[in-house]
Simulated assay, not measured.
Amino acid sequence: MSAPSAHGGVGRRIAYYRSVVHPKMTQQRLADTARVALGTIRKIERGERGVSDATLEAVAVALGVDPALLRTDRRSPHTAVHGALPALSAALAAYDIPEDGPVRPLHELRTTVAEAVHWRLAAQYTRMARELPDLLTELARAYHAASAHERRGLAELLVSAYRSADAVAYKFGALDLSARLVELMRWIVPETEHPLFTAAVAYVRTETFFAARAYATGLQALERAIDAVPAPHTASERAAKGALHMRAAVIAGRACDATAAQIHLDEARALADRTVEGVYYGTAFGPDSVRVHEVSVAVGLGADHVGYALTLARGWQPTPGLQAERRSGFYIELARAQLWSGLADPAFESLKVARRIAPQHTREHPWVREDAATLRRLKRAESESLTHFAQWCSAV
């Protein structure tokens, strides 16, 4: 027999559907309806024994649910994106020895990479996962076959394409693949001979520090990157430096360094006040982006700062022109602040707004699953829509 933890997921889901979806169904009633021994039901729900296919089918019928809802590990749902990750990994493995094949003209490749950047900012992960393996292979083929004077432009396209691929890997929990993509970005970016592309890669590299919870080290890396950005005279230069300050503020918040977080937010705000909101070298920056990050920093600093997060958000919302991923992230952060403040209903409304803006980004965000599960515990006998939301984001 497997260890209890191997079966806990199935048992928890059975207990959930029995006690929450069917609050009047006792273990005895479930056992009687499914024609399974009461002791078996108790052990299954406690994760102390496995479940045969026949027993699972009988329990599912008794609960009135699809057996797949009980059997699947809903915390790690297998989606079309997950199915595409091996192809993405294979494309990266052959980055220096790509297969032979056709290569489109440079202007066509630029158009396709620009589309991939748009998909990333719009959180269209399924489309990226489907299209990027072939695009990365073609770009690698073009880069290795190019003359010296053509390589700079292709290096820029590779940085942007790798970044789009990294968004897929990181958001869907493939952290080793994400780290590999970050290293490939760092490998190719010197070929661009462009400090703003280097700044963009430093911004993305912070993911590896978030994943490792190495917040202090990540802050040091960002501050070095900030020092390396040229004195900002153009909008793009202000945006590059400001985006790094935004990122540094967030990771300083995670490091519980409120002073450093405030310093970087002040720098970002000063630069944003002189910059029109937009996308610069693949990163959104401007006044709205800084406000979103101010809320994120307050939430990252913990429960003592959530009141400030709510004050920042009161009477303000990101404009529709802001990229979908960033807008949905704002409402996810706001929902956490509201939940910590005991505002369960507003928190659920914020999560629903996040889903409307960017469904895939919201569904894959770990905070959404955690907060939806917490809301279900707080409101056990209420809201069918909350139950459906919790199922949708794999919180049950």
Rank of each mutant, 00 (worst) to 15 (best):
L334D: 13
G329S: 15
A129P: 02
A354G: 06
W316A: 10
G173R: 04
Q338Y: 06
T33Q: 12
I226A: 07
S164H: 01
L175D: 13
A37N: 11
L154C: 00
A179C: 00
A94V: 05
T234L: 05
A146L: 02
G321M: 10
L175G: 06
A231D: 13
R238P: 06
G286Q: 07
L219W: 03
A260I: 00
Q317G: 12
A260F: 01
G302W: 07
G11Y: 00
V51Q: 01
E267S: 11
P102G: 15
A337D: 08
R110G: 08
R291C: 05
R151T: 05
T137Y: 00
I14R: 00
A94P: 00
D166V: 06
Y17D: 06
T208E: 11
S147K: 10
D345T: 15
Y162I: 00
A258C: 03
G64D: 01
L157P: 00
T319D: 14
I251K: 09
R180N: 13
R363Q: 12
L136I: 09
T311W: 02
V59A: 01
P4Y: 07
V250A: 14
V279Q: 01
G329A: 14
A225E: 08
Y281A: 10
R163H: 09
A91N: 03
V113E: 05
L135A: 06
E183A: 15
T206V: 09
A80D: 08
R35C: 08
A313M: 06
R369I: 05
H233A: 14
G282N: 07
G307S: 09
R152S: 09
R363L: 07
L222G: 00
E370D: 14
T387H: 14
E277S: 12
D345A: 15
Q262N: 11
H233D: 12
I251R: 08
G278E: 02
V353A: 12
A161M: 01
S164K: 00
I41C: 06
A381S: 14
R314M: 03
Y308W: 06
K379C: 13
E237T: 11
G218V: 08
A6I: 05
V229S: 05
G242H: 04
H293R: 12
G342R: 04
E57W: 07
Y16N: 08
A258K: 05
R75E: 12
A390K: 04
R180V: 07
P98S: 05
A221P: 00
T208I: 05
G83N: 08
R247C: 03
Y17C: 04
R291S: 10
H22C: 05
A155F: 02
D53E: 11
R127Q: 14
L351C: 11
R46C: 03
G8I: 08
M128S: 06
K43Q: 14
V168Q: 07
T283V: 15
T275I: 02
A87V: 02
T374K: 13
R269L: 03
A199S: 03
